[in-house]
């Protein structure tokens, strides 16, 4: 998919609101508020329900606002599972994935953007192909690779068995490189003026030094975008960790929340409290890093 060409780069520019006006301002606000209410209602319902007591949370019809506030629901929900551990796991897994992905992507993107070598086009096409490969096809082979070789099966051939089922490794290693991040950074690095490189060569700077002291400092926004997108993906991922882990020691929050659905049963007030604290960090990150996330999505068209 030729994403970068299709997509607008305009989002960073101020929007030019001189497009032909339609309808009255009041009408437009009405439309936007209505849509906003529908979009935001589940969040409102989540937070208010998390503060209700059990009988109110399971009353028909639902109340709009809790008759009394029960902040202890959060304590209760938190104490039912080792959430602290789940959060620590998720932060560790996401942090390690992001760090690794940035390193591999910066190096590869730099090579594609600033270096000449044999087989560049072929390799780039191969990277593109991995980007288009849907995860469904590789889900099962990856699972088999993470498994332990059954007795009598060669652990190296034809399929290498890494014996990483139920470890951090299984949740981190497959995400240490992303063709997508390579594209994104390559676009950024291509835009670096040739004069800068020439000046660096005259100074006797090698690639690594040029990359470190010139390219990276001027690419911080792009790096932050890659980091946020990758962190976001890692934080929210569910299917793979669900399949490849079993113990609480390495369980991430999304899998924990899924397990808590069974535990809470019809105690929706506790379930909503848990959902609230699971989404809180990522929403906080969104509010703080909105600019980067929005830019990243607009520039790259990642849909999650």
């Amino acid at each position: 998919m030729n994403v970068p060409q299709v997509l607008p780069r305009a989002i960073a520019r101020p929007l030019r609101p001189r497009i032909p006006r339609i309808g009255s301002t009041v009408f437009k606000h009405l439309v936007l508020i209505l849509v906003g209410a529908v979009v935001a209602y589940p969040f409102y319902f989540m937070v208010t329900s998390s503060l209700k007591e059990f009988f109110e949370a399971t009353s028909t019809p639902p109340t709009l606002f809790p008759t009394s506030l029960h902040f202890e629901n959060y304590v209760d929900a938190w104490s039912r599972q080792p959430w602290g551990r789940f959060f620590a796991n998720t932060f560790f897994i996401a942090g390690a994935s992001v760090a690794g992905e940035i390193v591999t992507a910066v190096l590869a993107a730099y090579a594609f953007a600033q270096m000449n070598f044999r087989g560049k086009n072929v390799l780039f096409a191969l990277f593109l192909a991995t980007y288009m490969m849907p995860g469904e096809a590789t889900l099962i082979p990856n699972f088999v690779m993470m498994s332990k070789a059954p007795p009598g099966v060669n652990p190296f051939f034809p399929i290498p068995r890494l014996n990483l089922y139920d470890t951090y490794g299984a949740q981190i290693l497959p995400f240490l490189a992303s063709a997508f991040s390579v594209f994104l950074l390559r676009q950024q690095f291509l835009a670096i003026p040739k004069e800068l490189r020439d000046a660096a060569v005259i100074d006797g700077a090698g690639h690594l030094r040029f990359l470190w002291s010139v390219v990276l400092p001027i690419s911080v926004p792009a790096l932050v975008t890659v980091a946020i997108l990758s962190f976001y993906a890692s934080w929210n991922s569910f299917q793979w960790p669900f399949i490849v882990t079993s113990s609480e020691a390495v369980r991430p929050v999304q899998v924990g929340l899924n397990a808590f659905r069974a535990e809470a049963g019809s105690q929706y007030h506790l379930l909503m409290a848990a959902a609230s604290f699971v989404v809180a960090p990522i929403i906080l990150l969104y509010l703080v890093g909105q600019r980067f996330l929005v830019q990243g999505v607009a520039r790259t068209g990642i849909r999650g």
Binding site: V39, A40, P42, F43, F45, M46, Y232, W235, N236, F238, Q254, L257, N258, R261, L271, M272, A275, V278, V279, I282, I283, Y286, L293, G304
Partner: peptide, 13 residues
């Protein structure tokens, strides 16, 4: 907002 919220949490709600 919904777009940045994890699918598991959003679907649970």
């Amino acid at each position: 907002l919904p777009y940045v919220t994890s699918t598991v949490a959003a679907a649970t709600v």
